[in-house]
Simulated assay, not measured.
Amino acid sequence: MVSFLKEIAIELGEPSAILVISAHWEEKQATITSNSQPGIIHDYYGFPAAAYEIQYAAPGNPALANEIYTLLTAHGIPAKLDEQRGFDHGMFIPLKLMFPQARIPCVQLSLLNSMNPRIHIALGKAIAALRNRNILIVGSGMSFHNLKAFFSDMIDGRRENEAFDDWLIETCTDPSILPEVREQRLIEWEKAPFARFCHPREEHLLPLHVCYGIACADTPTAQTVFNGEIMGRKVTSFLW
């Protein structure tokens, strides 16, 4: 995964700004970081001391934050700006690997705590105009996120993991799937094989829904750019 993140950054080139939709931020309404110099939040526990010394001093981008706010509200999606919140590890961990110089302005957009997949796709559609610019949009979550399965020797779950992973790859990348069918599959993701085993709670899946919403009008079919194991579990990354 580390090698993939470093290599994909080279392949994509350097953007003028980065928007991250992180699994680690939920709000009642869509919320955007708007501080010009946000700090970072070490929002994890139980790790070695060095994990709490990590810094990523990327600047914010208030102008982009305001643009996202305007796009969301223009599409009838309630939104707010947050000048206080820093960047969580769903943002600074991947970006520290991808762009270690931390010189590219960054903004984070929250998930909605309703966890409604249809609304998260609509959230993406509302800000799809950002794709016309040199802005990298990162859905930072995980295609498999069952922590008990990760850390328990008593739970195998490989069959379940691989079945859901196969379904997700097919859903996002198969060009024979009609766009309206693809969208409905993502909305009804709980019907996928072993969906709730792989995502007991869906916050790590929904950043994908936002990214799909952003891309679906002009690039409905994604590419699989990473498919490997992390802690013995199959995980996949997609690029639109």
Rank of each mutant, 00 (worst) to 15 (best):
A102M: 11
D43S: 03
M142P: 05
S140D: 08
G60P: 14
I155S: 00
L111P: 05
S36D: 07
G141H: 03
F144Q: 04
L72A: 03
L112D: 08
A49F: 07
Q108W: 01
K80P: 05
S140F: 08
Q108I: 06
M115L: 12
H89S: 04
M142C: 10
W167N: 08
A57M: 04
W167Q: 05
N66R: 15
F47L: 11
P48I: 08
S114E: 06
G90N: 08
R159E: 15
G141D: 04
N161W: 11
I93A: 07
T173R: 09
M115K: 13
D165A: 12
P117T: 00
S114K: 13
R85G: 13
L81E: 07
I68T: 00
A65M: 10
G46A: 02
I93G: 04
P94L: 07
K125Q: 13
S110G: 11
P94Q: 02
E53K: 12
A122S: 12
Y69D: 10
L136I: 12
R159S: 10
K96P: 00
A57L: 07
Q29V: 15
D43P: 01
A63H: 06
A50I: 09
H145G: 11
H75Q: 14
M98Q: 04
G76R: 00
A129N: 14
H120P: 05
E67I: 00
P48C: 12
D156R: 13
S110R: 01
Y52T: 02
L123I: 06
S34Q: 07
S34H: 11
P117K: 02
P78W: 12
I54C: 04
L111T: 06
D43F: 08
K96M: 00
N161G: 03
E160Q: 14
I135F: 02
P105E: 09
M154S: 11
S140Y: 03
F99P: 05
I169Q: 15
D88K: 09
T33W: 07
I104P: 15
A79W: 09
K148D: 15
A74D: 15
P48Y: 07
L95R: 04
E160T: 12
E27Y: 09
T173V: 12
F99N: 05
A122L: 11
E27V: 00
D82C: 01
H89T: 05
G76H: 14
A128K: 09
L130N: 02
I155K: 01
N132D: 15
L111D: 14
L130R: 06
S36L: 01
L168H: 02
T70Q: 15
R118P: 02
L95C: 09
P105F: 13
Y52M: 04
I40R: 00
L168W: 03
R159F: 15
A51K: 02
K125Y: 09
E67N: 12
E53L: 12
F87T: 00
H145E: 10
A63L: 15
T33R: 06
I121S: 01
L81D: 14
A163K: 10
F87P: 00
Y69S: 09
G141P: 06
G76C: 02
N132Y: 07
L71Q: 13
T33P: 02
Y52D: 06
P100T: 01
L81R: 11
I32W: 09
F164T: 01
E170R: 14
T171F: 08
E83T: 13
D153M: 05
I40Q: 08
R158A: 13
Y56D: 01
I77W: 04
T171G: 04
M98K: 10
N61K: 10
G139W: 10
P105A: 06
P62E: 04
